[in-house]
Simulated scan of single mutants.
Amino acid sequence: MRQRLAALAPTRLELIDDSARHAGHAGARSGGGHYRLLIVAAAFAGQTRLRRHRLVHAALGELMHDRIHALSVQALSPQEASSAAEPTV
């Protein structure tokens, strides 16, 4: 996942695997993981939240259909990240 997200040239990338917290969940049984993502990239500047999520999903490609069951995304521009109080995943 990190390799795919590198296409967005992030200045910060935090990816947390929460799959263990969802043991027994239908998505976990089928092999799909649950993840939280904080990504900061210039590509997000001036983009809507929806467009940012679409950029992340496009970068992850087919992983969104098999390896990832759930993904919580916090996508910020560098300016937003520097002006916000320490963003957390």
Score class of each variant (00 low, 15 high):
Glu62Gln: 14
Arg54Tyr: 09
Ile68Lys: 04
Ser19Ala: 10
Leu50Lys: 12
Ala28Thr: 13
Ser82Met: 01
Arg52Cys: 14
Ser83Ala: 12
Ala7Gly: 10
Ser19Thr: 15
Ala43Leu: 05
Ile16Lys: 11
Glu62Trp: 00
Ile39Phe: 03
Arg4Lys: 07
Ser83Arg: 13
Ile68Ser: 02
Val40Met: 06
Gln74Trp: 06
His57Arg: 13
Ser30Ile: 09
Leu13Gly: 03
Val56Thr: 09
Gly46Val: 02
Gly33Leu: 04
Arg52Ser: 03
Arg54Lys: 13
Leu38Thr: 05
Thr48Lys: 11
Ser19Ile: 05
Ser19Gln: 10
Ala81Cys: 13
Ser30Met: 12
Ala59Leu: 08
Leu13His: 09
Ala70Pro: 02
Arg52Glu: 01
Leu63Arg: 15
Met64Asn: 08
Arg52His: 08
Ala70Asn: 07
Gly31Trp: 03
Ser72Tyr: 07
Asp18His: 09
Leu13Asn: 08
Ile68Thr: 04
Ser77Trp: 03
Val89Gly: 06
Pro10Lys: 00
Pro87Val: 08
Leu13Ala: 08
Ser30Arg: 15
Gly61Asn: 00
Ala26Thr: 11
His65Gly: 13
Glu14Pro: 03
Ala59Asp: 09
Val89His: 00
Arg2Met: 01
Gly24Trp: 10
Ala75Trp: 01
Phe44Lys: 05
Thr88Leu: 13
Ala85Phe: 08
Val89Trp: 10
Arg36Asn: 13
His22Gly: 07
Pro78Cys: 03
Ala23Gly: 08
Thr11Ala: 12
Arg49His: 12
Ser77Gln: 08
Leu76Glu: 03
Val40Gln: 03
His57Asn: 15
Gln3Arg: 10
Leu38Tyr: 02
His25Lys: 10
Gly61Thr: 04
Thr88Glu: 14
Ala20Tyr: 12
Gln3Phe: 00
Arg21Tyr: 13
Glu62Asn: 10
Leu5Pro: 02
Leu37Glu: 03
Leu50Gln: 14
Arg29Ile: 15
Arg51Gln: 14
His69Trp: 07
Ala75Phe: 05
Gly61His: 05
Leu38Ala: 02
Ala59Met: 07
His34Ser: 13
Ala7Asn: 09
Pro78Arg: 02
Gly24Cys: 06
Ser77Cys: 06
